[in-house]
């Protein structure tokens, strides 16, 4: 199997940024409260790709790495925000969360295990099998997380109503 060229040349930088920016920005935006946060996260993911320069087996391997690293980075930012929350409460918050439609806000509030599979399935249109491969999970796990994620969303939206 042909391996992908190592990241770092002008050509590969243009290809990867062009090919994945939109998808990764949407994925990050499904986990973070603002578009600016999503842009920061995705730029850091590309920098991490440049620093780590993993050797990918093929395009699917590359995409899976980028998706998982974006989810990790978004989780890091959320954890950091949670730790900083008490401090933010007593100083002016520089960038308040952008209010969004209720379903998007509800997905953002879900644990990552549910939000990631719901986003990849319902927004990106990946099948359960494809989502399982991207997240290195058994397909059955993706199926059950989809069902449980939908159920949690139903409860959250019912409580808000």
């Amino acid at each position: 199997m042909r391996k992908l060229a190592s990241f770092g040349t002008d050509e590969t930088i243009s290809r990867v940024v062009e090919q994945y920016s939109a998808m990764l920005l949407r994925l990050a935006a499904a986990r973070l409260p603002s578009a600016a946060d999503a842009e920061d996260a995705v730029q850091e993911v590309f920098l991490k790709l440049l620093d780590a320069r993993p050797v990918f087996r093929d395009a699917e391997h590359e995409k899976a790495w980028l998706i998982r690293t974006t989810l990790h980075r978004a989780a890091d930012i959320r954890r950091k925000r949670a730790r900083e929350a008490p401090l933010d409460a007593i100083v002016e918050v520089e960038a308040p969360p952008e209010p969004g439609p209720e379903l998007l806000d509800a997905v953002r509030a879900l644990p990552e295990r549910y939000a990631a599979v719901l986003h990849l399935y319902y927004y990106e249109g990946y099948s359960i099998k494809e989502t399982a491969k991207l997240l290195a999970l058994p397909a059955a796990t993706v199926g059950t997380r989809l069902a449980r994620g939908r159920e949690r969303l139903r409860q959250m939206l019912k409580e808000d109503a």
Binding site: E39, E98, G100
Partner: peptide, 18 residues
């Protein structure tokens, strides 16, 4: 949900800057 994500306003120069 898809429309809400599509409506988010990302920087037009994000790719160039990145």
């Amino acid at each position: 949900y898809r429309e809400a994500l599509d409506a988010l306003s990302f920087s037009p120069d994000f790719r160039e800057r990145t």
